[in-house]
């Protein structure tokens, strides 16, 4: 991946959008997260730690903002704190949760600022981070509106996985050393394995064959993951994947900074879509009884 390739990829997407289409993606991985179903149990985050060899940095470093959680659960209070006398640390009602991972923006703001082209767009529509290339300038992190890139300020492998815990490391993904930026990859090692198998069996990747660690773990099935370009399934005769169906149902479309919805009841939205980052993750708004 030379610098000219990177700029080509970048401009190809921009041009494709202006002409009302996408460039020749092989797949385009996307996600749909139903916040109505999310119970804030943090299982997705734990699964991510286990799958992607994420370092546990400890309380002190976490408080300095050096946590390495690729998937974080953001907590909001959508009922006001009435200020009444409480016996608990937090108020009893009104918490809502939002799992936040890399949004795999199509027009990612992190990509053009990297001085060494360590982050680029793959033909799968993923926003890739190549650890070998990264020199740790942290421009990408500063340019990400979601703050979803995490920097290795230290070497964590000795403290985080003391023997024999190194045996639990996933061999399909490298352990990052200090000075390297990292972020959610949509579990690219799982995508790679499934694509390899499909290639060996001379077939296409089936819907639901790739599961990210978070969507596999979610006890309520709030996280759906799949190919946004649709895959024809000969068994059901359906040409669209679960994720595409969700996006269509909630009338969220790519390449828009504001969605035109027939009714305001449609719950789908993308975070910060007015910034024209064109994320691949759609959230379904939480509905509350008043």
């Amino acid at each position: 991946m030379s610098l000219s390739n990177l700029i080509d990829d970048w401009s190809r997407y921009r041009k494709g959008r202006e002409e009302g289409g996408f460039h020749d993606y092989e797949h385009m991985w996307g996600m749909s997260i139903d916040l109505n179903k999310c119970i804030g149990c943090n299982a997705c985050s734990v699964a991510c730690y286990a799958e992607n060899n994420l370092a546990v940095v400890g309380k002190e470093k976490f408080e300095k903002g050096q946590g390495m959680h690729w998937l974080r659960l953001e907590r909001y209070w959508d009922e006001p704190d009435l200020g009444e006398e409480r016996t608990t640390e937090f108020q009893q009602h009104g918490a809502s949760f939002l799992p936040m991972m890399c949004q795999q923006c199509n027009a990612a703001t992190c990509e053009p600022v990297c001085p060494v082209a360590a982050t680029y767009h793959t033909p799968d529509g993923l926003n890739a981070q190549v650890y070998n290339r990264c020199i740790g300038s942290r421009y990408c992190s500063n340019n990400c509106p979601y703050r979803l890139r995490y920097f290795n300020f230290w070497s964590y492998y000795e403290d985080s996985w003391p023997a024999p815990l190194q045996m639990q490391l996933n061999p399909d993904i490298s352990v990052r050393d200090k000075g390297v930026m990292e972020k959610c990859t949509f579990c690219v090692q799982r995508i790679r394995t499934v694509k390899d198998t499909a290639r060996m069996e001379d077939r296409k990747v089936r819907d639901g064959e790739v599961q990210t660690a978070c969507s596999q773990t979610c006890p309520t099935g709030a996280i759906e993951f799949g190919d946004m370009l649709g895959m024809y399934d000969p068994e059901t005769g359906v040409a669209e994947t679960k994720v595409t169906r969700m996006w269509r149902k909630h009338q969220v479309e790519f390449g828009k900074t504001k969605q035109n919805k027939q009714t305001p009841d449609m719950r789908g939205y993308r975070v910060f879509e007015f910034l024209n980052t064109d994320p691949c993750v759609m959230y379904l708004d939480r509905v509350r009884e008043v």
Partner: peptide, 9 residues
């Protein structure tokens, strides 16, 4: 393939 993420993990 010449994509970085094809071989680098």
């Amino acid at each position: 393939p010449s994509d970085c993420w094809h071989c680098h993990k």
